[in-house]
Every structure is written in C-alpha cells, then in structure tokens.
Design a protein around this nucleic acid. Structure first.
Lengths: 142, 142
DNA sequence: AATTAAGTCTACTCATTTAATAGACTATTG
DNA sequence: CAATAGTCTATTAAATGAGTAGACTTAATT
C-alpha cells in the first residue's frame, strides 16, 4: 500500500494536471477539493517542487503548477519522487533497494516471486502518465 | 510496500513450507534462521494459527507447522491473512476496501490506473503458492 | 505420579516512523 | 504599504514495530 503522503501527492498531481496551462492553483483549492489536510499538503507540494516537477508563485495570484505537460511524467516517477517504493519488498526495489539480512537472493523464492510482481507493476506504472489521473469531473480538455 | 509484519509472515511461512511434513518447528529456529525478532514472530505465528493456516504443539517437541500442503495456500491469501492489503490504494483494495473522501470512482483516473495495476499484481500472487517460497538452501525436496 | 524442562500464550511497555496541526516568516501584487 | 499566498520551524498525535516479564501447557524423565 502506498503511504498517505504518496496518495496525497498523486491526487494533487492529478488535480494540477487537469489545470495545466491555466496558471497557478492555490494550495487551499487542492486541499478542499481533494480533501487533503492543508498543512500536510504544503510539505508535499514543496517536496514536489524541489524534485523539479512543480513550480510555484508567491503572493497574490500565486499558487502551484506543473512545469511540464502531464504527459511527460509517468506514475512510476511520481510515486518515487515523494519517496514511495513501488516494490512490495525492499530487496526487490529498484530505487529503494535494501538487502535482506537473512537471504541469498540467488536462492530466495520470495525474492524471485516479488521481482516478477514488481515487473508487472512497473510495466503499467511506467506507461501511464499524470494526464491519466485527470478526473473527468475536473476538466473537459480530454 | 508490505509491512514488516507481512514480510516476516511470508518468510516464516516459506520456512515452514520447506519443513512441511517434518513435524513441529521451533519459533526460535525460525527466528534465528530468518532473522525475525522472536517476540514479534510469536504474535505473527499465533495470528496465522488463528487464521487456520498453521497449527502448533505445546511442550517439549512442540512448535509450529503448516496444516495443509504448501501448494494449497497462495501468496495472495498469505498476505491477506496477516492484514496486508495488496492493492496500492484503499479504494482499489478488494479485501480492505475504503472509499475515498474526495472522489467518484466512476470518474477517478487514479482509481482506474490503480485497479489495472492491482489486477496485474493479483494475477501473479494468486497463482504462486507457499511452495514457491522455499529457498533452495532450506531443502532439497524440490 | 511428581518434577522439570521445553515450548506456547498473554499482557504490557518502549521506540520509531508517519501523519497532522499551529504559527511565525517571507515574497509578490496592486 | 496592505493584503495575499507560499515557505519554514516546531510540536503533537497516531500507528507500527520491537522488547520484556511472566503465566500457562505439554511431554519426557525419574
């Protein structure tokens, strides 16, 4: 299961994807519509900005916005940006790999099974992009 | 990512699968070989017993053992037994479903994408069984 | 049969990580 | 310069992971 933080990040990105090209979006708007605790959302958006996906504008008329077209960022990338491993186990994670204390991976059945699972998951998440997160209720620009 | 608890459960089940038919296995053995904190492991094994996968024998010569052949239990079942959702989001989980506060699932892009991912994952985890978790180092009965 | 050793079972307590809240501070627009 | 909106720092709350102490059961030994 993805952490709350990652879930919120995906929802926020999906919302911003729907508003792409329409200028800055308020944190408070995202918070209200996507039902995300505003202070938690602040830190997530800041992190996504530092990661290079979002930019922001301060002051009146400010807000957050996607730097690139929603089609440029895959869901796999988005999940990893906020520190969310995609694999089910650390020992099969590509970006958050950690060796098991107890096992020799060459021989570990669990490792093998989970690698197959991971590959199936990645195959999907690396194809889908933020543009597919846009709710039909948010926009009609599809 | 699966919780530590679920990870430990899978490792323990894999070890017990390798010892299937050889009588009770000590908690302390599983703990040592699979590097699982022994007291944490106790609660996990107890839970698996109450769930009907394992049985135990008290006293001298006691321990835990699989009730049925390792081939009878799928990895998907095993993960769910210890309370581990397989899906990446609550709103696409079959056994631990929870509705999102903010979204209409019929229209939610995130929901749709994650359902596809879930199905791909389940397709694998519902085919593989505990017998595939047996390390080649644990046994030669393959 | 009584004793004892080997094992599971039950109930707390402590630590770490993850989530959520509050408020002060800084930059931008008009 | 006043109002708006993002940024930063600090604290609190909740969930998960891990550890401790001891009671209860069973089986082998004498």
């Amino acid at each position: 299961m993805l952490s709350k933080k990652t879930q919120y990040a995906l929802k926020a990105l999906g919302y911003l994807a729907g508003k792409y090209g329409e200028g800055p979006v308020l944190i408070s708007d995202i918070s209200k519509i996507k039902k995300i605790p505003i202070k938690f959302l602040e830190t997530i958006l800041l992190e996504l900005k530092q990661a290079g996906v979002l930019d922001s504008k301060k002051g009146k008329g400010g807000g957050y916005f996607l730097i690139e077209s929603p089609k440029k960022t895959t869901l796999a990338q988005a999940i990893r940006l906020v520190g969310g491993p995609i694999a089910l186990l650390p020992c099969v994670s590509i970006n958050f790999y950690e060796k098991c204390k107890d096992c020799d991976e060459a021989v570990c059945g669990l490792n093998k099974a989970m690698k197959i699972t991971r590959d199936a998951t990645l195959k999907i998440l690396e194809k889908k992009t933020l543009s597919e997160l846009i709710d039909r209720a948010d926009t009609f620009n599809l």
